[in-house]
Design a protein around this nucleic acid. Structure first.
Lengths: 172, 172
DNA sequence: TTGACATAATTAGCTAGCTAACTATAATGA
DNA sequence: TCATTATAGTTAGCTAGCTAATTATGTCAA
C-alpha cells in the first residue's frame, strides 16, 4: 500500500490547495496519515508473522477457519470473506495444505466443492502466533483510551460510509 | 494489504479472547477496522488513478516531484521519501520516463547520480488527476467534522507512537 | 597514491496478488 | 430430456513490489 514516509507539510498542502481548488487540506492530511499508519501496522504485522513462518494471507485464512465452530469452510467462502479472488485462495490453501495447517476434504454431495478444515497443526500454529500478535497489538494500542477507541471506530465508520460517494463518481 | 470483508462479531472476539488472554477486544476491533478502511481507500484510489492510466507508485512519485520548487529530485531521495527500495524506484521511473512524465538528467558533478525532473507532460497529468482525486477525497471525508479530523489525526499519532512497542518486542 | 570502503543506480530473479481461461459438476427451463 | 447457464475450483501467465548482486563512481585514511 502506501509507504509514504514523507507526509506533506502544511506549507506544501497550502501550495497544492492553491493550484487545485478542489483540495480539502484537513481531509488530505487525515487521509494520508490514515494510509501511512495502516501501512506501518500491516508491515509490522508481516514482520511478526514471518517469525512464525507465516504470511498475512495464509494467517487470515487460519483465523477465518478458527472462527467456524466446526473449523471448516470452503475455498469460495473463504475467498469472499478475505476479499481475495478464488484463484488467490487456491494458492493460499496450497501453501497451507503443504504445511499441514489445513486439510482439503472432498464433498460427495457436490463434487465440484471441497471442504477446508483447520488441522490440529493449524490450530497449534494459531496458538503459537495469536498470543504474540495480541500482546503486540495491546502494547501498540495501550495509549488509546476507551473513548478514543470508540471515536476511532465511529470516525472510520463515517469514512467507510463516505466511500460510496467516491465510488459513485467512478462513472465520470 | 488486508481486504478482510468479514470483520469478527463481538461474540467471535469474546471467544478468541477466552482462548487467548492477551487479547484486548477493543484494540483488536479498532485495529481491524483501521486496516479495512485504509485498504478500501487504497483500492478506491487505485481505481481512480487507473482511469488516468496511472498506478499509485508512479503517481506518488509525480507528487513528490511537484512538491519540489525546481520539480527535481534524485532516485535515492524519492525512494526514501516514498518508502520503497531504490530498485523499485528504478522501475517506477522507467515507467514514468517511458510515458514522458519525468526526465532523467545526468549530473556532471557526481556521475553516479541522476536528476529526475517532472516534465510538462507530467505536470499536465497531475493537473488532470489531482482535481479528480481531491474532489473524491473531499466527498469521502465530508461527513467528518473538523473536530473529528483532529481527533483522527491525534489517535493515529498515538498508534504510530505505540508502534515502537511493537517493534521493540520483535527481539523475542 | 592507492586500497578499502561507501554510495548511486541498475539488473536479475523471487513472491503474492491479480485476470482470464479452463475443467468438472450442478441446476434450470424450453 | 438435454442444451444452456451457473458454480467451484484450478491453472497459466501478468504485474508491482521485494532482495541480492552488479557496475560505476566517489571518499578517505594509511
Amino acid at each position: 500500500m502506501l509507504q509514504l514516509r514523507d507526509l506533506p507539510t502544511q506549507e506544501v498542502l497550502q501550495r497544492f490547495a492553491q493550484r487545485y481548488p478542489a483540495a480539502d487540506v484537513t481531509a488530505i492530511a487525515s487521509f494520508l496519515m490514515l494510509l501511512r499508519v495502516a501501512t506501518d501496522l500491516s508491515v509490522a504485522l508481516d514482520a511478526c508473522l514471518s517469525k512464525h513462518d507465516l504470511l498475512q494471507g495464509r494467517w487470515w485464512v487460519l483465523i477465518l477457519l478458527m472462527r467456524e465452530t466446526d473449523l471448516t469452510s470452503t475455498p469460495s467462502v473463504l475467498a469472499e470473506k478475505l476479499g481475495v479472488t478464488r484463484a488467490t485462495m487456491t494458492g493460499l490453501l496450497d501453501g497451507l495444505e503443504q504445511g499441514g495447517l489445513v486439510q482439503r476434504i472432498s464433498v460427495p454431495e457436490d463434487r465440484r466443492s471441497v471442504k477446508i478444515k483447520l488441522t490440529a497443526a493449524g490450530q497449534a500454529k494459531l496458538d503459537a502466533v495469536m498470543p504474540d500478535y495480541y500482546t503486540r497489538l495491546r502494547l501498540c494500542m495501550q495509549g488509546l483510551s476507551e473513548q478514543q477507541r470508540n471515536d476511532l471506530q465511529a470516525i472510520l465508520g463515517v469514512i467507510d460510509h463516505g466511500m460510496s460517494a467516491w465510488d459513485f463518481n467512478q462513472s465520470i
